[in-house]
Structures are given as structure tokens and as C-alpha cells.
């Protein structure tokens, strides 16, 4: 009799475990919803992006490597002028250069904040960086338009709109992101590495660059790629200063265009279903695929770093 009671008690689901199950289903359904959204976006963009090549019969090779971008015009063979190389090139050059310039500044700042400055200094810097991360990109673009473009014009000549201005604006935009992630990477280096290095006779500086920085390389690389991917996807601020001229730039001052800037400019001015609209979707598809590549790289690096620190 008593045993029966006990058995019942043990097999009956308690309120807590019911709540547990409810919570599980709730988060599972949220997960499924997100999954569906992601798949839908991927499907949508890719299927629309491919229309250019299937329906409109554009040669993908000519799309990727053609240098003439005038979707409203055709060449003498009656082929539409939809060479996307200038924008692909513009996006990569501006992104890579801005990250390349930002990385040393970011790493330097991160080292200063984690290893050198006192706690109060670090706190002030931390809030400044967080503030910078939170500024909307249109504000950066606006500052770029009113400060950087005239500055470039007055210093180097030309219109001021172009690659260089784009790089400067993006540099300022991604600097805080890369910095704050590098700070995390440095802070994640175990304290015992530092103490060990000191105990063997390393100077503070040797400790930083021979041990701390080196151990944090995977994290710092992740930060840089993250900055890259943010720069690559940034549209508004770049569009405001880059000059929006879809030709392969001749030098750092020439006006240029990026995938994103052409997209934001064009998407409202084309009719759906037209070739002009389809090619923009193809640009969007390239952007999407590039983001996926960046994410893959980040994961790869992250895995490697984990392996190194946990074995």
C-alpha cells in the first residue's frame, strides 16, 4: 500500500517538471521560427538572385567579371551592360583596406586598455568605445559627408567623394567593434600565463607581445574578420561618401561604388521583375554569400582557438 503511494508520487509529473517541459517546447518553437526565417531569406534571395541568369539569360561570367554597369543600356550585340566587377572590387578594396588600417589601432588600444592603463582609464575608454559601437551608421555617414569629404577634397584634391573617404568612414565605424572584441580576446588570456611569463623574467612588454598577444591571436583574428564582415555589409554611410560611380577606381581618390551602395540606391528606382531589378538581387545574393563566408571563417578560427586553450 505504502509502496504504491511512493510509486505514484515518483511517477507523477511534478509541477516543476511540467513547467520544464512547457519551457522546452516554448524555446523549441522559437528556434523553429528562427530557422524557418533564415531558410526563407536564403531561399528568397538566392532564387531571386538567380533569375538574372535563368530568366534573363545573363552569362554569370560576364556578370561577375564585366566592368560596365549600365543596366538600362545594351552593348552593340544587344547584351545588357550588367558587369558587377566594379562594385565587387569596390566592396573588397574598401572593406579590406579599412580593416587593415583599423586592426593595428584596435589592437594597440586593446593592449593599452587591458595591460597598461589603470582601471579608471580603462573604464572611461570602455564607455567611449561602447558609445561608438552604438552610433547609428547614418550618423557616421553624415559626419563623413560634412567632415571627411571636404577634408579629403582640400587635402588631396578631387571631389572628395571616393574610395579614400569610404575607407576613412568605415575605419572609424569598425574600429570600436574590433577594439572591443580584441579587448575580450586579451582578457580571456589566463592570468597564469602572465604570471608565468613574469616569473621567468619577462619584462611587462615581453609578456604582452610574446605571450598574451600570441595566445590571443585566434580571438583577435576573429575580431578582425568580424569587423570585415561589418564593413562589407555597411551600406548607408559608405553610400553617402563613396561617390557612387560604378567604375573600377583608378586611384584612392576616384569615386567608386560598392555592392551595398548600388543596392540601396537602385532598389527603390527599379520595377520588380525587370532586368534592372533582377541584377540588384544578384548583387544581394553575392553579399549574402560573402557574409556566409565570413561567418565560416570566424567559426573556423574560433574552433582553432578553443582547441589551443582547452586541451
Amino acid at each position: 500500500m505504502e509502496q504504491n503511494e511512493l510509486f505514484k508520487q515518483l511517477t507523477k509529473k511534478s509541477v516543476a517538471s511540467k513547467k520544464d517541459i512547457f519551457g522546452k517546447y516554448l524555446s523549441l518553437s522559437a528556434l523553429i521560427l528562427i530557422g524557418i526565417t533564415v531558410v526563407a531569406i536564403l531561399f528568397f534571395v538566392i532564387s531571386r538572385g538567380l533569375t538574372t541568369f535563368t530568366l534573363d539569360k545573363i552569362n554569370p561570367f560576364r556578370f561577375l567579371f564585366g566592368t560596365d554597369w549600365q543596366p538600362n543600356n545594351v552593348d552593340k550585340n544587344n547584351n545588357p551592360l550588367v558587369g558587377a566587377l566594379p562594385m565587387i572590387f569596390g566592396s573588397f578594396v574598401i572593406t579590406l583596406l579599412s580593416a587593415l588600417v583599423a586592426a593595428p589601432f584596435a589592437i594597440g588600444t586593446a593592449i593599452f586598455m587591458t595591460e597598461v592603463s589603470n582601471q579608471r582609464g580603462a573604464k572611461i575608454m570602455q564607455s567611449v568605445i561602447e558609445l561608438l559601437v552604438g552610433i547609428p551608421s547614418v550618423v557616421y555617414g553624415f559626419i563623413g559627408l560634412t567632415v571627411i569629404v571636404p577634408f579629403v577634397r582640400n587635402t588631396f584634391g578631387g571631389s572628395g567623394f571616393g574610395i579614400l573617404s569610404g575607407i576613412i568612414v568605415l575605419f572609424v565605424m569598425i574600429l570600436p567593434t574590433i577594439t572591443s572584441m580584441s579587448i575580450d580576446a586579451l582578457n580571456n588570456v589566463p592570468k597564469i600565463y602572465r604570471e608565468s611569463a613574469y616569473s621567468i623574467g619577462a619584462t611587462p612588454w615581453q609578456t604582452i607581445y610574446k605571450v598574451v598577444l600570441r595566445s590571443a591571436i585566434p580571438g583577435i583574428l576573429t575580431a578582425i574578420v568580424f569587423g570585415l564582415s561589418r564593413a562589407f555589409g555597411e551600406a548607408l554611410a559608405v553610400q553617402m561618401v563613396v561617390g557612387n560611380s560604378p567604375v573600377i577606381p583608378q586611384n584612392a581618390l576616384s569615386p567608386a561604388a560598392t555592392l551595398t551602395s548600388v543596392l540601396t540606391q537602385g532598389i527603390g528606382n527599379t520595377t520588380e521583375g525587370s532586368l534592372q531589378n533582377d541584377v540588384l538581387w544578384s548583387l544581394a545574393m553575392i553579399l549574402l554569400l560573402m557574409s556566409l563566408v565570413f561567418n565560416l571563417i570566424i567559426r573556423k578560427i574560433g574552433k582553432k582557438g578553443e582547441m589551443k586553450n582547452n586541451v
Binding site: S196, R214, N309
Partner: peptide, 9 residues
Amino acid sequence: FQQPSPFPF
């Protein structure tokens, strides 16, 4: 130290 802490090299 107590925790074996070779550098990740």
C-alpha cells in the same frame, strides 16, 4: 604554480 600552465606553444 599549482595549475600546469604551459603557454599554448
